[in-house]
């Protein structure tokens, strides 16, 4: 069963249809890269799946269970949206770290708040909080920041901030981790460190969807590449199929424009 299945997602902004019926699915452990020119709807798709925008139509399934149904007339409660949201993690283009907290606090904040809802929170408070803390430290070490845990975001480079935000997203154990152009806000010499972290996650079978402009990186790290243009999926296949033997003219045009 697919860990994530997206069916016929449609999204309009006013009169403009940004997503015109997107379908795709992915398996556990798979890494999917979404490429396409600006305005093709890649980011909007990610935002719809993560419930930062509400899709107008379509369905989203996680492990076969429907977490969003555009046909349903019932209004979903904030609690339901939150529960659905927790299936996923999202790493933003602009990091969006919380400036008043240290790197470690950025990673532990959400898990600590969430732990308060556990039935055994009062009894095992200390163990639960210690475990969250340990887990966060391990995650920060994993992204190479073991010696910057006490630093505030303003004391970190862009690449370090983005690595903290990856650790922050991983702390909630998302079933699928989404990246929205994770290196676009970074200087070229800093993108390498982010790509290394993502590659490392891919090797550890973290299920990921990466919206990116780094075509060579997509080729190296992704199991599958989706090419989007004008709100539709034009290609969906292995890196070789999509990048070396594109079927669609628009894909060919997009890829050749990158080589100039």
């Amino acid at each position: 069963m697919s860990i994530l299945e997206v069916k016929n997602i449609v999204k309009n902004f006013g009169k403009i249809q940004v997503l015109k019926g997107i379908d795709f699915s992915m398996e556990k452990g798979e890494v999917v890269a979404i490429i396409g020119s600006s305005g093709s709807g890649k980011t909007t798709l990610l935002r719809c799946i993560n419930f930062l925008e509400e899709a107008d139509k379509g369905q989203i399934f996680v492990n076969g269970q429907c977490i969003y149904d555009g046909e349903s007339t019932e209004k979903r409660t904030p609690a339901q949206i939150r529960e659905a949201q927790l299936n996923f993690g999202l790493v933003f283009q602009s990091f969006n770290l919380f400036p008043q907290y240290t790197a470690l606090e950025n990673v532990t904040l959400a898990p600590k708040l969430l732990a308060k809802e556990r039935a055994d929170y009062k009894e095992n408070k200390k163990e639960i909080l210690d475990e969250i803390e340990e887990n966060a430290k391990a995650l920060l070490a994993r992204v190479g920041l073991e010696d910057r845990m006490g630093s505030y975001p303003c004391q970190l480079s862009g690449g370090q901030q983005q690595r903290v935000s990856i650790a922050r997203a991983l702390a909630l154990n998302p079933k699928v981790l989404f990246f929205d152009e994770p290196t676009s806000a970074l200087d070229p010499e800093l993108t390498g460190e982010i790509l290394r972290v993502i590659r490392d996650l891919a090797n550890k079978d973290v299920t990921m969807v990466i919206v990116t402009h780094e075509i060579e990186f997509a080729r190296n790290v992704a199991d599958r590449i989706i090419f989007m243009a004008d709100g539709v999926v034009l290609e969906d296949g292995t890196p070789e199929e999509v990048l070396d033997h594109p079927k669609n003219e628009k894909t060919q045009h997009f890829l050749s424009s990158l080589n100039h």
């Binding site: 993560n50 419930f51 930062l52 904030p78 939150r82 949201q85 927790l86 996923f88 993690g89 999202l90 933003f92 602009s94 969006n96 770290l97 919380f98 904040l109 959400a110 708040l113 969430l114 935000s165 922050r168 997203a169 909630l172």
Partner: peptide, 22 residues
């Protein structure tokens, strides 16, 4: 910035938590 709200939201925080904690 809107990104601060969104970061809290995708981390599963309630609106109240986002406001008071972030």
């Amino acid at each position: 910035s809107k990104g601060q709200y969104e970061a809290g939201q995708v981390l599963g925080m309630t609106k109240t938590q986002v406001f008071f904690k972030i």
